[in-house]
Design a protein around this nucleic acid. Structure first.
Lengths: 263, 263
DNA sequence: CCATCTTTGTGCACGCGTTCACAAAGGCAT
DNA sequence: ATGCCTTTGTGAACGCGTGCACAAAGATGG
């Protein structure tokens, strides 16, 4: 999911539902692909399939933007690309900074999807002095001391946090104080920000845990209707192997001792 | 967001709403932190704050798991950690494979949050023969040819796709054919999978675009209330013809020129 | 110009998720 | 025991999001 703005003001941005906004990038990508193949028009049905959604939902989504289709024909691809881009604010230039140039930060810096949609990496920032000056993705890493000046000089309003969890809140505070009003947070922490600042969170570990939940359910269902404990003790064709390492001893490096049930 | 299972079967897993499942990892993290500080009990109010949610929501979420609290006191931290871990299936061992060891794949391999919660990286797989054998995060990269045998030998049921978009569907098909039933997809593509396979998507570019949308709104609001409509006022300017590249405005140091609104 | 066919745009109903608000339940002091 | 105080657990109301199904709109062919 990686969901969640903080403090949802129930604003329902000018009438465009949040759920619709979240899908617009999806449509845009599908449309861009069509555009590159010089497809002139597309029906809601086709586009919906390409974007992985239901056609009724797509039409309703578009209806919030206006009546951009032609009945009996479909939607003009180029026109729609422009309208959605404009609605998402991608017709303007968005300088972003990435703070925390570890493995993830470097990956983000190299990620092509950023530049391709109006986002420009204005600077890479890291707290490690040894990193300073080293080129990553063609940009020299700047030291944290310069954070504030970089933000103001470049008019940055979007920041990406890819630091360890411990440093995230502090970095966040500095970003916000310097004028950043939108933050994409990869650190596994809840950030607290003042009113008016948007935070979106991407948490890899959470996504995996959600998958694990469903995976466990699938495994449990196959064998017995419901018995919870003693999960997939038997059967279990391929996947879970032996499963059942229950609440054993230590875990990996990062360690996280499984609690034993108390009283 | 990074949302979306495919094909929502409206299953409502044994009565636990999807939305609740998505929050359980959040609670678990907050609880683990409390546990490490040896806090014995916690109230719904405190825990909710730590997890960044509303206390009523938290209580309702927990009510789906059972009555694990004590009125007048709160919840036993250790006990709750155990219950949630069990519910999420984290008391068992989940071997995962990561396919596509580029910048992102390497970052994922090094990410501590995986190992810490019952997930074990069973193998790193890449299509580039030059990568084969090279150690990343302490594991030798294996070649794609070995994909099927790795899956079956290790009983892997969860796969992470971090390949370029072009290769994603093909990799996905092979994973599924080999027995993987849960996929975490970082490639910017819509994956099609057979019934019974869960896909979760994490798309960095989409998250940024959503932020940009809200950012644009904030900037627009400050200056003028609402005018919008002007654009396609008159009939459909067939394709890109009438499309004026309105936005043109550069951004100042801090500022943000609102898209020009022509008549 | 009319008939037919395609596809959009949307009114409506339904279900999920969120929040409020309160009764029930347990601890604790007296 | 008894009464007070705290906090849970949940019934109920509400709002958002989704999907159905159809009328309106436009294209197309005769």
């Amino acid at each position: 999911m990686a969901t969640g703005r903080t403090h949802r003001p129930a604003t329902r941005s000018r009438g465009i539902p949040e759920a619709t906004v979240a899908r617009l990038p999806l449509y845009l990508r599908a449309l861009t692909a069509l555009s590159e193949r010089s497809v002139p028009t597309v029906s809601s049905e086709e586009l919906a399939t390409a974007a992985g959604v239901n056609s009724a939902k797509l039409r309703k989504d578009f209806s919030y933007l206006g009546s951009y289709g032609t009945r009996g024909v479909g939607y003009d691809v180029e026109y729609l690309v422009y309208q959605i881009s404009r609605e998402l604010g991608l017709t303007q230039d968005w300088p972003v900074v990435i703070v925390g140039i570890g493995n993830l930060g470097a990956a983000l810096a190299n990620y092509g999807g950023f530049a391709s949609r109006g986002f420009r990496v204005a600077a890479l920032i890291d707290a490690d002095p040894a990193m300073a000056g080293k080129p990553v993705a063609g940009l020299p890493v700047r030291h944290t001391d310069e954070l504030e000046s970089i933000i103001t000089d470049n008019g940055v309003s979007i920041g990406v946090i890819a630091t360890p969890a411990g440093a995230a809140q502090q970095v966040c505070d500095r970003l916000v104080a310097a004028g950043v009003t939108s933050i994409l947070n990869f650190a596994p922490t809840v950030l607290s920000v003042p009113e008016g600042v948007d935070v979106r969170k991407v948490d890899l570990s959470i996504e995996l845990q959600i998958l694990a939940f469903h995976e466990q359910r699938k495994a449990g269902e196959e064998t017995s209707p419901a018995q919870e404990t003693a999960v997939a003790a038997t059967a279990q064709p391929r996947s879970g192997a032996g499963v059942r390492s229950a609440a054993g001893g230590r875990k990996g490096p990062d360690g996280d001792v499984p609690a034993v049930m108390p009283a």
